[in-house]
Nucleic acid binder design. Structure first.
Lengths: 217, 217
DNA sequence: ACAGTATTGTTATTTATTTAACAATAATGA
DNA sequence: TCATTATTGTTAAATAAATAACAATACTGT
């Protein structure tokens, strides 16, 4: 899944990510009363080049004016039409440990598009309780609840040893996207979106570059 | 900072990340008593192709045997020599909110290489307390403490509005790497490692792909 | 009227990364 | 002995993405 077709043009996956970022920058600009913006201004807020902004906008077929730049309101609308899911998306968190709860709080109420509608944890003390008004279910009920609540995306924060098993269950239950924050890489069919972010790897990479830079001196 | 020289060979940044992952897979294998492993076995654990594993190992100059594959112990040592920082690396967390605490717990004690030696928060109730035996400082003391404790890497989990300001302070104080988990993109000089991971963008991307896949049906 | 300027939109080039292809090798077993 | 097999190591090709280059345009000030 490397490119995506929109308006019969191929759009790089990375452009999709940037569009989301552009939109956030644009929303802030509207709050300040700005109505138009130049590519280099967007570029300065996010850290990309002005060329990349123009190229991304070209790909989605959005045109600016030569002297005023891009109409912010229109651009937000066009990006939203591409990114957003009309009826919103139901999300569930699997693993209500520290990290799961943090992610919960991070999202809760931030974007109405993305609704956290259930949590799952194998700890019997948590099962049956509510966390911020969202019920915590036993992992045994994954299939049932995913279907009943029409959950499309799963945030995976279970212990690394459980990751594979839970992921399999999720796929079987018909989940459409998984954000895997465990350190265990998982495999999913092609039609399931997967994002894996491993903090240990990131930290080790950071440490490595720190070392490299010191050696250069 | 796109490639890195090791043994006079150019190594892609992504390879560095995979080496870290390979090592983790290998460590698990040694626990199971395995001594040798084939490229396709490593590939199956992480989700990359066998070719990519072989290519990565070629780049770091590690040789396997034709019939047994790669010696796990030796490979771990070679990867460690590349990745690890002899004296370890001191890390600090900036912003002890839910997310900051979750990251703290995630790392605490996991890798002796990476030591969390300080936390910072602007909440006066947190300043001066200890969280898991690590002192929480006022942001006013960033420069002083970063230097005194030789902190090389910063985990940034402050509110998005503070991100730019704190990042600037960190760079001024001589930090060498920043992992930015706020939704505000920051800019750093070339010699500072930067990793940005924005969960909102990731979720929106996930929702987008879910939508795309449904439209295909 | 027209040179100068700043910007967009698009094509071309470059760079980075992955994937494919395949020779070399060593063990196996007919 | 020699074809078969499974693997590594490496070069070549393909793919993906970012960057550069630049024509087209519309406004400004002289």
């Amino acid at each position: 899944m490397a490119k995506v077709k929109i308006h019969s043009k191929e759009i790089p996956v990375k452009t999709i990510g940037r569009l989301s970022q552009y939109r956030r920058a644009l929303l802030i600009c509207t709050l300040k009363g700005k109505t138009h913006i130049f590519s280099h201004e967007i570029a300065a807020i996010q850290h990309v080049t002005a060329v990349q902004v123009r190229r991304d906008l070209m790909l989605i077929g959005f045109n600016g004016s030569l002297k005023q730049g891009y109409n912010i309101r229109n651009l937000i609308d066009v990006i939203s039409e591409i990114l957003d899911y009309e009826e919103g998306v139901n999300v569930a968190i699997f693993g209500l440990g520290n990290f799961g709860r943090a992610l919960f709080n991070y999202f809760y109420g931030k974007r109405s598009q993305l609704r956290i509608v259930a949590t799952f944890d194998s700890n019997t003390e948590k099962i049956g309780t509510e966390y911020n008004k969202v019920y915590c279910y036993s992992p045994y009920r994954v299939e049932e609840i995913v279907k009943k609540k029409n959950i499309k995306i799963a945030i995976l924060t279970v212990p690394p040893k459980r990751a594979l098993e839970v992921a399999k269950k999720l796929v079987d239950a018909g989940i459409k996207g998984i954000l895997n924050y465990t350190s265990t890489p998982i495999d999913v069919p092609d039609d399931v979106f997967l994002d894996e972010y491993d903090m240990i790897t990131t930290m080790e990479k950071a440490a490595f570059f720190v070392k490299m830079n010191e050696l250069k001196l």
